[in-house]
Write a protein that binds this DNA or RNA. Structure first.
Lengths: 204, 204
DNA sequence: AATAAGACCGACTAAGTGGTCTAATTAAGA
DNA sequence: TCTTAATTAGACCACTTAGTCGGTCTTATT
């Protein structure tokens, strides 16, 4: 019982440290030893809890990344009305933590996606699943918004979702290379313009 | 004289093969030996022409990637009128080659940007410079569009450029993970909607 | 044909890599 | 306290990596 607790604690420490290093230096450029050195642990400890580096990475994706994306991008929009303003504020909040917390891991997702593209198809699948979850939440929200009169009927919800996701991935990637604050401001401004054009137009 | 020609030919072969493999498998996951095996060349040849793997990569960026971005995304919009339609068609054309030519290398840029983010800051700088070139071209085109009556006066050209770049980076990154055709269609549709809202509104 | 420089070969090194294994340590239950 | 199992240490293995270096081949010049 207590054993189990200790086990989980150690696993968690490894995962958190692993995510941080993977995010900073990339999955392939981070060695298992790098992670262990950071925590003053040994090879034995690592391979006692995880059976390979890849399985370890997948466990990080499923435990930490899923949760971060869900709590930052999915949950805030679920069931809410007025999709455009709620999506906008969830993205803005997410970008804000990214802006201030340099190693925030908030959207390590896009980095990992590009890194595991050709190689590691299994890992890539898990990452894409997370994107899918977000996409579905966006589409659902937009569809509901049509019934509630917040979104124009002619709007292609799938298209809007794909576009929002693309733009967000792109901005996060650019923010990683500096001048985050400025980019965030521009991004939100343009997103707002774009959304405004998708709202039902007043009759005139 | 003839020597120089042979030298350049070999260097070019190495760079082309290198870009293809780097793009497919990532920079860090591609070994110099992988590239050499593909061309039936030896270590000696490689290090005779390039003094390190990193310098080799930079030469690829400056010779091949710059040129591709320039010819696909910068040149088509330079000096033209009607920025929105010309930008749209340049992006669509670029996505089309990406869609049909699986290893098109067209925008390896975004992959490399994310891979060299934390590590390889020097390489990252060169990549960002290319983005800057594109950004400037977009902004210039939009500004000119205002004078010519294609773009509404109140539009923030910087913001639009940043947003377009973000969306394009994001879509390219997603296209790398499959169903490219569908994504391309959605992307262009939404881009058009967005652009429409930035055009001068007819008086009514 | 002789020479010299340009271009290339490939064995080798040193520093990692993921992963295994045995032994030591720690903690739990009797 | 003694035993047993959970956990960690760290030496070790086979393999890969970027980069070196003395030697060989090719080509142009004389």
């Amino acid at each position: 019982m207590e054993h189990t607790l200790k086990r989980l604690a150690t696993m968690q420490r490894l995962q958190v440290a692993g995510l941080e290093l993977f995010y900073q230096n990339g999955y392939h450029s981070t060695s298992v030893d790098d992670i262990l050195k950071k925590l003053d642990l040994s090879k034995g400890a690592f391979y006692y809890h995880f059976k390979s580096k890849e399985e370890f990475f997948i466990s990080i994706i499923q435990n930490l990344i899923v949760q971060k994306v869900y709590s930052a991008l999915v949950q805030p929009i679920e069931g809410k009305e007025d999709p455009f303003s709620i999506i906008e504020s969830s993205l803005d909040a997410s970008l804000e933590t990214a802006e201030h917390n340099f190693f925030d891991n908030g959207f390590a997702l896009s980095n990992f996606l590009s890194e595991t593209k050709g190689k590691d198809p299994e890992v890539n699948t898990y990452l894409n699943d997370i994107l899918k979850i977000w996409e579905v939440a966006l589409i659902t929200s937009l569809q509901k918004g049509k019934s509630d009169g917040y979104v124009a009927r002619h709007v292609d919800s799938d298209g809007v979702a794909a576009y929002v996701i693309s733009a967000y991935i792109g901005i996060r990637l650019q923010m990683a290379s500096g001048n985050a604050k400025n980019l965030r401001y521009k991004f939100i401004q343009q997103l707002r313009t774009y959304f405004r054009s998708l709202a039902p137009q007043p009759i005139h």
